[in-house]
Amino acid sequence: MSGADHLPGSPLHNEVTHFLYVEAKLLDNSRYSDWFSLFTEDVRYWMPVRTTRFLAAGKGFDEDMALIDDNYISLKTRAKRLESDSAWAESPPSRTRHFITNVMVKDGAAGEIAVSSCFMVTRTRSDRDYQFFTGVREDSLRCIEGGLRIARRKILIDQTVITNTNLSILF
């Protein structure tokens, strides 16, 4: 998909960037239901398994296996779980910080907006040291009733071995 670019400073780039910042702030403030309301009912929220491969074999993402592969209901389940008082992996909660950079905005298919953004997420939990999660998110955004919604998010994590205990946080 190679639609027209919307450069930094353009109205759409500004709107998308602001949307991603707001989304990140919701996650860092543990407002999971509000965060979930940003997704469309046909969403696929997805983090494929990555493998170490030689360059000629591609980037090593396995389309047949994922670390996370949610639809609307299972993503809602994940968000609601984090708001319960018994999701022990996040209760008491970790402190996360979502740093979103390198935002690139293009026209996507069917009137959607194709956005890629880099993330660095830090997690510190209990008395433990920082954990880092980095990668790229490929989003399809849709304009619904005047607001942006996420219709597809493919999270391309940089690690082939997740060295950070679990993926109990959101990206």
Binding site: V49, D62, D64, M65, L67, V161, T163, N164, T165
Partner: peptide, 11 residues
Amino acid sequence: IVGTPQIWDVD
């Protein structure tokens, strides 16, 4: 087996 294994480290 489906695809490749998930691999992760736990302390």
